[in-house]
Amino acid sequence: MKIAISSSENNENSKVSDRFARSEYFIIYDHDKLSFEAIVNTAKDEGSGAGGKAVKILGDAGVDIALVPELGPKALEALLAFDIKSYQYPREKTVKEVLYLYFEKKLPELLISTSKGKH
C-alpha cells in the first residue's frame, strides 16, 4: 500500500503543504517496504487543471491513499476514478505527523470536495 502526502519539501520531516495539487512535492510512503520517496509535483505550474494532473501523477505512481489539505471538485472526481481514497490532514504538521494521524484513524475521509474549483 502506498500513501501520498502533499509536502512543501522533499522529505518526510517536511511541513505538509497547504495546497493539494499545487504543492511542491508528493512524499510517497510505501507501507510494504516502510520507505519514503519524494516526487516533484509537475502539476503545480499548470495554467489550468492542476487537480486532475496531480491525481494522474499519483495514479501512475501506484498510490492507494492520498492525505490532503483540501480538494477541489475535479481532483476529487479524478481520485475516485483512480480508486484513490483521500483523507484530510490539519495544517502546520509534518509529513510523518499526519501519517501517524492517519494510522491512528484520526483523519476524516473526504467524500465531497472542500473547495470550489479555481480558475
Binding site: 495554467g47 489550468s48 487543471g49 486532475g52 491525481v55 494522474k56 495514479g59 479524478a78 476514478a81 483512480f82
Partner: peptide, 13 residues
C-alpha cells in the same frame, strides 16, 4: 495542454 482529458484506471475523465 489544459488537463481537460485525464485517462484514469477504468475510465477517461
Amino acid at each position: 495542454n489544459f488537463n481537460a482529458i485525464i485517462p484514469a484506471k477504468k475510465k477517461v475523465l
